[in-house]
């Protein structure tokens, strides 16, 4: 993707925006970019805890806006990988403390003065002010969708709103897909979701317990685990960087036949 500033959004809450921000952001840094992830969910910040950096937040984005600290003082360096930084949201203020003009200024400074290759902006749920502020400075977008009714509908709305903001480099991440359910026809397939939403795919992330396990202890799966979801997030980062990475097979290894194959040593 050409876009340096990328908003991660979904419309619906709970589909994995923050997890995607942390994992894709970390994977981009692991693959050589200087990355800052910004939490714009003022009042309900979570990117800090998902990344395990909650103990190190001193200043947040509102402090920068209101001049209580320098931009660089609010950037928390993640020590597990080179060139990954977090800019936290304020937990005690409300959404009206952020405005589009200030947001645009900060993103511009991060790219032009601080030399960041990528600014990943975690949007709050919804389509109101919080989302609009998160999207205002973005040149590209990653829409996170789960293969279920409410998430797909909301994703369609949010894609329309990104277009209305003239953000055209928009890619789709299908998150939490369950291969066994897809196989028996009880979950939308990747192609079904693409047909409905009509935008370009950049990642398919299977439902994976490893994500929750990593998050429990403040680890970022794309840095620390070898799970399927971790591989998927790393592949998304590489595709953002322009590499052509084939999609992983979603075949479930847990089915009855797969079990038999394991027992009898078939392939």
């Amino acid at each position: 993707m050409k876009a340096k500033a990328i908003v991660i959004t979904s419309g619906k809450g709970g589909v994995g925006k923050t997890t995607t921000t942390a994992n894709v952001g970390a994977a981009l840094a692991k693959h050589g970019e200087k990355v800052v992830v910004i939490d714009t969910d003022v009042g309900l910040r979570n990117l800090d805890v998902v990344m395990g950096l909650e103990g190190r937040v001193v200043f947040d984005i509102i402090d920068v806006f209101e001049g209580r600290c320098k931009l660089t003082q609010a950037l928390i360096r993640d020590k597990r990988v080179d060139n990954l930084f977090l800019l936290a949201a304020s937990q005690v203020r409300d959404k009206n403390s952020l405005d589009e003009e200030k947001m645009e200024t900060i993103v511009k400074r991060l790219i032009e003065e601080e030399g960041f290759d990528r600014v990943i902006i975690d949007s709050p749920a919804g389509i109101e002010t919080g989302f609009q502020t998160a999207a205002c400075a973005a040149e590209g977008g990653l829409v996170v969708v789960n293969p279920e009714v409410a998430s797909v509908r909301d994703a369609d709305r949010i894609i329309g709103l990104l277009e209305a903001r003239e953000i055209y480099e928009v890619r789709l991440i299908i998150n939490r897909i369950r291969p066994a359910m897809v196989k028996r026809g009880d979950m939308l397939e990747v192609n079904d979701v693409l047909e409905i939403l009509g935008i370009q795919l950049i990642g398919i992330v299977p439902e994976d317990e490893a994500i929750l396990v990593s998050t429990n202890v403040g680890n970022i799966a794309s840095l620390s685990s070898n799970s399927k979801a971790s591989e998927a997030f790393n592949n998304i980062a590489k595709r953002i960087q322009g590499e052509e990475i084939p999609y992983q097979s979603l075949d479930s290894d847990t089915g009855f036949l797969a079990g038999l194959r394991r027992i009898f040593g078939g392939s």
Partner: peptide, 13 residues
């Protein structure tokens, strides 16, 4: 069930 969902989503969208 996913085909039922797909049709419903197409209409609502």
């Amino acid at each position: 069930t996913k085909d039922v969902l797909k049709e419903r989503l197409k209409v609502v969208i």
